[in-house]
Every structure is written in C-alpha cells, then in structure tokens.
C-alpha cells in the first residue's frame, strides 16, 4: 500500500466519521488509548529497571571472578568489579529514566 493511498483513505475515513457524527467517540477512544499507553510504558520501565541493574552487576561479578582466576589473586578484582558493576547498573537505570523523561 503506498503512502498516498493511505493518506487518502485516512482522509475519506475521517470525512465519513464526521458525516455520521462519530468524531467525538473516536476522540474519546484515542484519549483512553493514550493513558493506557503511558501506563504500559511505566510498567515496562519498572520491569526493565530490575533487569538492567541485575545484568550490570552480573557482568561486573563475572569479569571480577575471571580476572581473579587469571591473576591468581583471591577476591581483589571480584570486590572492585562488583562495585563497578553496581555503579554501571545505576548508570543504565539513570539513562533509562532520563530518556523516558525527555521523551
């Protein structure tokens, strides 16, 4: 379907809606859809925050663990990278929240 056809179809549809007095109903529908969308995106962000923090921490711990094995030191890198992983998790959550605030 080309863009022109879509546009003319939309124009004809809205003209028909106006003709039969369906416009106000349509507006109500779109308003309720908008609030639903906001709720859905909030739920998605809430779920995403947990995943982001957990995965960053996981990567930090994994790298620290592996470096400890390589260099044969006990837990030095694990401790450092656990903190760095936690910080990375907070950073990605911060970016996530900031990007949703601006949009």
């Amino acid at each position: 379907m080309s863009k022109n056809n879509e546009e003319s179809f939309d124009a004809r549809l809205s003209a028909a809606e106006r003709r039969y007095g369906l416009v106000s109903q349509g507006q109500e529908l779109s308003a309720s859809n908008d609030s639903q969308k906001v709720n859905q995106s909030l739920v998605r962000i809430a779920l995403q925050v947990g995943t982001e923090m957990f995965s960053a921490l996981l990567v930090g711990v994994a790298i620290g663990w592996e470096l400890d094995h390589w260099f044969g030191v006990k837990a030095v890198f694990l401790i450092i990278f656990s903190f760095l992983g936690g910080a990375a998790g907070v950073l990605s959550v911060w970016r996530l929240v900031r990007s949703t605030e601006t949009s």
């Binding site: 995403q48 982001e52 957990f54 995965s55 960053a56 996981l58 790298i63 990375a88 950073l91 990605s92």
Partner: peptide, 9 residues
C-alpha cells in the same frame, strides 16, 4: 560494564 551488560539484560 554498562555496554557489556546490554546482551546480558
């Protein structure tokens, strides 16, 4: 670490 955590998340 933030970058590497992408595929994990």
């Amino acid at each position: 670490l933030t970058f590497l955590s992408r595929p994990v998340s």
